[in-house]
């Protein structure tokens, strides 16, 4: 299974998560977002980029409550909330945002 982006073949698993996260770029993210029915805004990118940085540092995709806690710390109370994240990613922030960020499915995310 694969996405075709700018003539490149990007392999993904049966749920749409990238097989090789080094193949990720903004164009790939845009395709992944489209598949999820999400129109990417600056606010969406903020979360996606945050997830990329988190993964880069810890080599894991954070669980939702860990993501909320971390966002609250860096971006304040309003953005560090379940409600805000669900507004941006209605079908589950951890799942959808991680997929768009090219990360594996968060550990423990069912």
């Amino acid at each position: 299974m694969a996405y075709e982006v700018n003539g490149k073949t990007i392999e993904h698993d049966e749920e749409g998560y990238l097989s090789d996260l080094t193949q990720w770029d903004n164009d790939v993210a845009a395709i992944l977002a489209k598949d999820e029915g999400i129109e990417m805004t600056d606010e969406h990118w903020e979360v996606v980029n945050f997830l990329r940085e988190y993964y880069d540092e810890y080599q894991i995709a954070p669980a939702i409550r860990v993501l909320v806690k971390a966002l609250k710390k860096t971006m304040g109370k309003e953005k560090g909330s379940n409600k805000y994240l669900y507004t941006l990613f209605p079908y589950g922030p951890a799942k959808q945002a991680c997929k768009i960020a090219g990360l594996p499915k968060p550990t423990g995310c069912i």
């Binding site: 540092e57 810890y58 080599q59 894991i60 860990v66």
Partner: peptide, 11 residues
């Protein structure tokens, strides 16, 4: 995967 141990505090 050793960097993941640094995330345990967040959990």
């Amino acid at each position: 995967f050793s960097p993941a141990f640094k995330a345990l505090g967040d959990y």
